[in-house]
Every structure is written in structure tokens, then in C-alpha cells.
Amino acid sequence: MIIWPFLVIVAVLLWLSSESMSVLVGVRSFSEGESLWSKGQKEAVFHLMRYAETRSEADYQKYRDAILVPRGDRKARIELERPDPDYAIVWRGLVEGRTHPDDIPHVIKLYRRFRNVSFMAEVVAVWEEADQMVDDLIRSADQLHERASSPNATEQTLRPILHQILDIDARLTPLEDRFAQRLGDAARSTQLLLLIANLAIATTLIPVGIFLSYRMVRRRDEAERALKLSEERFNLAVTGSNDGLWDRNLDTGGVYYSPRFKQLLGFTEPEMEDTQEALTSRLHPEDRPAHEQAVDGHLKRGVPFDIEMRLQTKAGEYRWFHFRGQSVRSTAGRAMRMAGAMTDRRPSPTA
């Protein structure tokens, strides 16, 4: 029982460590996603330039494959902004953005929990601005494809659109750098916050656990002292009484005879076993039926157990003793234990 506060502390720290790892995985995935986003955008521009030269649909298809990465991330971001997002859409968008499936739950958790925290809000703001430029890039690519597909297309007719594409690419480059910088700041801030949270919780819970353990130990010691005092009082009462006490567990068959009980029969404590046989074997043969009837009547019908019978002492003589007892019963009324006292019928020497 004493260790349970520390078990709670360990469980809380393990949970906090798990959450910390999840956040760090999310931050790492964001960083990898930024690299894939930038790579996809740059490759898309490259393949558009190639398409303007070759007019090959294969090059244009390569552009579409490359631009799918920023578009997939944009799809996921827009859905995550909703109060009740459809996580299937988020999942598909992040997969299109080439986020590893194992990292997607951590990315979602990081975005939803820290979206409005200052350092994360700056990252998302840069992301939104870059997505708007990607939309411009996609519109320019559509115009390029439409003009390049015309039989009358010339280098002069395509040049204005290519300038637009290169201009967008030039404006995206510093945004991508700023995104990477803000994401790095966010990662460092997150690590610092997690470190502070871990230390704060540990320094709070450990003293609490020590205090609770100390209080439990103190209560246990007080209970042990109270029990010891109660046992001492009981032993004093038994020692000072002329009666011998007996106690029988009806479920297990265990029996207890007090030292005075054995002394009345002439035995020292080690000389007489604490068994039911030790008593019944010393009953006078004529008193055994009455003893059995008295026990049976008390256990089965609740008749008071109050009987006088003869017991053989260590010296071999039979002496009269007065037995009284009471059973302890379960809630169903079944007798589980029976205890009482044995009194010597001989007159007291001081009487």
C-alpha cells in the first residue's frame, strides 16, 4: 500500500513522456513535411519549364505529380481548421503530401493542440501565405498548358506566363526559408515547454508522494500501536481472570485455548495442543452426549450454550467445569466461529 503514490507518479510521468514523444514526433514530421513541400514546389516549377520547351504531356504530368505534395498538405490544413474536421480527408491530404502514415496521428495532435499557440500560429500563417502563392502557381500552370496546347503557340506567347511562374517561385523561396525558421523556433520552444512541464510535474508529484507515503506509514504505525495496546489489555484481562478462554474457528477447525484454560487442567501452555481433540478427549464419557447436544442446539437453533461437564485433568482426576459460549454468524445466519469461557466449579481458596 505504501508504494501506490509512487506508482501513480510513475504512471503520470510515463504518460507525460509519451505525450512529449508524440509532440516531438509531430514537430519532426512537420519539419520533414516542409522539406517535401519545398521540394515538390521546386520540382513543379522545373517540370513546367521543361514542358514549355518540349510541349510533352509527360513533363506536364510530372509537374502535376510534384504539385500534388503542396496541394495535399493544403487540403489537410484547411480541414484541420474546421471545428469538427473529417480526419479521413486530413489523412488523405497528408498522405498525398508524403507524410509517413505512422507520423500522421502525431501531426494531427500537434496541429489541433498547439494551433493557436504563438509559435505554432506563426508557422501556420506562413503556410497559409505560401498556399495562396501555390494557388497562383497552379493557375499559371493551367494557362501555360492551355496556350502550349494551341497549334499557334510560340515562345513569345508563353514567355509572359513563364515570367509569372518564375516570379511566384522567387517569392516562395523566402517564404519557405521563413517557414523553416519559424518551425525551428517552434521546435525549440516546444522542447523547452516540455522540459519545464516534466520538471514541474516531477518536482510536484515526488514531494506529494513522499508526504502521502509518510502519512500512510504514520497511520500504519498508529494502528500497530493501537493493536499492540489492545492485545496487552486483552492479555492482562485474561491473565487476571479466573476463567479460561477458548475460541474455535468452525470454518478452518482452528482452536485457541488461553494459558489460564490450560492451567485449570493442570497443563503448561506447551503441554496442551490447541485442537478440538485435546478437549473432547478429556470429556467424561457420561458428559459427551450432553456436550454434543449443547453445541448442536446452539449452532443450529441458537440455544444458549451454557453447560456444566467434567474434564480430566493432567493428574488424571475429573473435575466439574462450567462452560459458556457464543457463536459469530455470517449475514446469512451461518455460524463461523464460537468462543467462550470455562470456569472452575471448585470454591475459590479465598472464599
Rank of each mutant, 00 (worst) to 15 (best):
D221N: 02
E81D: 14
M21Q: 10
H322E: 06
E271N: 08
M120Y: 07
A200M: 13
E317D: 15
L279M: 12
R188M: 13
E146T: 11
L245A: 09
H100I: 14
P347A: 12
A153V: 11
V126G: 02
F119M: 06
Y51K: 01
T275K: 02
S22V: 02
T252H: 02
E269V: 08
R260S: 03
T268E: 07
P349H: 09
R248K: 04
S140L: 12
Q41T: 14
H106V: 04
W15D: 08
P304F: 10
F234E: 11
R71Y: 04
V27C: 06
I78W: 09
G240T: 03
E286M: 04
E57A: 13
R64A: 12
M338C: 01
L175G: 11
E222F: 01
I196M: 14
V107A: 11
F119V: 15
R55Q: 09
K42E: 09
L205I: 07
L94D: 00
P304R: 11
Y256T: 08
S330Q: 14
F261A: 00
L94G: 03
F114V: 05
W246P: 02
T190W: 03
S258Q: 03
R77G: 05
K39C: 01
R71G: 05
R260Q: 12
S118N: 11
T331M: 15
D243T: 10
H47D: 06
G325D: 01
Q164P: 05
A130Y: 01
P151I: 06
A153L: 08
G266K: 00
Y257S: 02
M342K: 11
Q276Y: 08
H106C: 10
T173V: 14
D103Q: 15
P160V: 03
G184D: 12
Y256E: 02
R260H: 04
L14Y: 09
E122W: 01
G72P: 07
Q156Y: 15
L205M: 15
E155F: 15
P349R: 08
A88I: 05
A44E: 04
M338T: 00
V295S: 03
T280E: 01
Q132V: 13
D185L: 11
Q156K: 15
L110A: 08
R225W: 02
R82C: 10
R55G: 08
M120D: 01
M342A: 03
E308L: 09
I168M: 11
G26M: 08
D59Q: 08
L13N: 09
A294T: 09
L162M: 08
P70E: 07
I78L: 15
